[in-house]
């Protein structure tokens, strides 16, 4: 591994964002920032240009995580977006799949799944 992987966490539940933050730090993945809302997330991502994004589907405000991903991929298609959702119902998954996600993880998150998503063994 040449240099640390970088990630932005988009999640509106503080307790879950905090948990993901802790997990990433344990895995030596550099957390460039946390965002709870779509527009916050967009400006944070375009500023920090992370390799990975952990993306919650439900966010505060009108736009959801899929909207954010579409916008990010339109600008930087190489960004690896890992969706993290509490709901594995087909409508939600269908909506996620419109964005060609890198990985989809269902809450509750198993740390080894996250490790695998980052390509760490």
């Amino acid at each position: 591994m040449s240099e640390a992987k970088t990630v932005v966490i988009v999640e509106d539940e503080f307790l879950i964002a905090n948990y993901l933050d802790g997990l990433c730090k344990q895995m030596s993945v550099e957390v460039l920032g946390l965002a709870a809302k779509a527009d916050e997330a967009l400006s944070l991502i375009s500023e920090t240009k992370p390799q990975y994004i952990l993306m919650d589907v439900r966010l505060q405000g009108r736009r959801d995580g899929v909207d954010v991903s579409n916008a990010v991929h339109a600008e930087r298609p190489e960004t690896r977006i890992v969706f993290i959702t509490g709901s594995n119902e087909p409508p939600t998954l269908d909506r996620i799949n419109t964005d060609d996600p890198f990985r989809v993880l269902i809450k509750p998150i198993n740390p080894s799944e996250l490790r695998e998503a980052f390509g760490l063994d």
């Binding site: 503080f14 307790l15 905090n18 709870a36």
Partner: peptide
């Protein structure tokens, strides 16, 4: 404090 501050922000 961490929990209160985080939830207040949320």
């Amino acid at each position: 404090t961490l929990i209160v501050d985080g939830l207040v922000r949320q």
